[in-house]
Amino acid sequence: MSVMNTAIPYTVEARPETGLYNAKLGMWLFLASEVMLFGGLFSAYVFLRMAAAHWPAGSSILSIPLGAVNTVVLITSSITMSLASAAVKERKFDQFKVNLGLTILLALVFLSVKSFEYGMKFSHHMYPKTNTFLAIYFALTGVHVLHVLGGLVVNAYFWGPGSRMGQADPQRFANRIEIAGLYWNFVDVVWILLFVTLYLL
């Protein structure tokens, strides 16, 4: 029997009809499901708030300055992520390293601020079980923090051991950074929505 052709098409180059390579379509689909996940949590927020007899103003419990700082941090990290992606497309690996490194640092800043906020709440004896506002606050931001952590791990891998692919297979590596960027921008957008809903509204 002849040797089978086992190579999977369109792992690197785009399929002409769809204009996408496999992983990019996969990431868009994943993000669609993520929209539904956060959609479910946000509708829980709306549902609980509408049913509540009394709903505290976010600013009376949460610190708007800290939230605003984190928003700026995450938006900046989205910009550096895009710059990293653009750099690797042009095969400028030094620029790529700097920008991705900045993205990772900014993510760490975000997590530090977030854990400081959590710590403040706990020190004031404000736990998820205290009231429904805090419950949905911790649930929404908690799930978001997990997403930041996930993105951080992936980006750190691409900055460190994963970056070797940049030399061996630059096009494939550029694809990887591109879809990591898609994910990171999504995490950023979710945070902006969280900031508006929980802190400002």
Partner: peptide
Amino acid sequence: LLLAFPPLEAAGILQLFDRVAATSF
């Protein structure tokens, strides 16, 4: 599966909160 399961995951997370962290969702 892609679009209908995540809201159940959201619900599952909230029920876990209720059971483990004593919230009242």
